[in-house]
């Protein structure tokens, strides 16, 4: 490959280096025995991991982030899947407009969404910040729910539901025995993408934080601003390990090609 397509190969290698090397630095630093965030690490120790898993604000924030991501993912799928079905299979007037509406959170700056939610819901309606964050994250994930499940629906033979009906299935039965199983890989990938998007989100979570409820990235950001010790690196390494584990499980069970293509083939 490197001899035949030198430019592409160089770019690919550069891409990997740019993406992976900084992460390796963070991982290496987290095992330091010293007390500053510095490379190369001074000695080898697990003390910062010990500190991280005993740092109450991080643990609370981690639980909050997981709760928020899980709930928002479920909500986004509950709203997004029926919307996808209506867009792809229904006789909806103005389908393009509806799809555009569901995809718009991809384009509208998150700070604008966050500010609007802050003004209207938190100040205006006095909703508590968890509810507002949940609404905000759900909105951010809708494009994934609609787009990714839509991709798997668009690739399926449009006549399979009719075939099921012809063989004696009621519309509901056809949905549960044929349409839903066809959507399953799409739903799985939409859920995975949504969860990761919510878990990693900073702008919205930063704007809508409160003393009682803040997510892990926001808490870590706060921490780094005050103290520059390797505990943040250790926390990052733990999260990275968790993400890699999820990725490995996903690859083994469904396969990335299917997940990110949302394809049932």
């Amino acid at each position: 490959m490197s001899t035949r397509r030198p430019v592409a190969a160089t770019l690919a290698v550069a891409g990997y280096v740019i993406m992976i090397v900084p992460i390796l630095f963070v991982v290496a630093t987290s095992f330091t025995g010293g007390s500053t965030l510095r490379f190369p690490p001074e000695g080898l120790s697990l003390r910062w991991f010990d500190a991280a898993v005993h740092h109450t604000p991080f643990i609370t924030a981690m639980v909050s982030s997981l709760q928020l991501a899980a709930l928002a993912t479920v909500l986004a799928l509950l709203l997004g899947i029926p919307a996808t079905l209506a867009i792809h299979r229904g006789r909806l007037p103005g389908k393009g407009l509806v799809e555009g509406l569901f995809l718009s959170p991809l384009i509208v700056p998150e700070l604008v969404v966050g500010l609007a939610l802050f003004q209207q819901l938190m100040i205006g309606l006095r909703l508590d910040n968890f509810t507002v964050l949940l609404i905000g994250h759900t909105v951010l994930m809708l494009p994934y729910a609609v787009r990714v499940t839509g991709a798997s629906l668009a690739l399926a033979d449009p006549f399979v539901e009719e075939a099921a009906r012809g063989l004696g299935a009621s519309p509901l039965r056809a949905f549960f025995t044929v349409t839903l199983p066809l959507l399953r890989p799409g739903i799985f990938s939409a859920a995975l993408l949504s969860f990761v998007t919510s878990f990693n989100n900073v702008p919205l979570s930063l704007l809508l934080q409160s003393r009682d409820f803040r997510t892990l990235p926001v808490t870590m950001l706060d921490y780094v601003q005050q103290s520059y010790d390797p505990m943040v690196a250790a926390t990052s390494t733990i999260i990275l390990a968790g993400t890699v584990l999820v990725a490995v499980v996903a690859e083994r069970t469904v396969g990335f090609a299917r997940i990110f293509g949302g394809i049932n083939r």
């Binding site: 399926a156 033979d157 006549f159 399979v160 075939a163 044929v178």
Partner: peptide, 8 residues
């Protein structure tokens, strides 16, 4: 059906 519409 022309496309067979088998359940994959």
């Amino acid at each position: 059906f022309q496309s067979y519409a088998l359940f994959p």
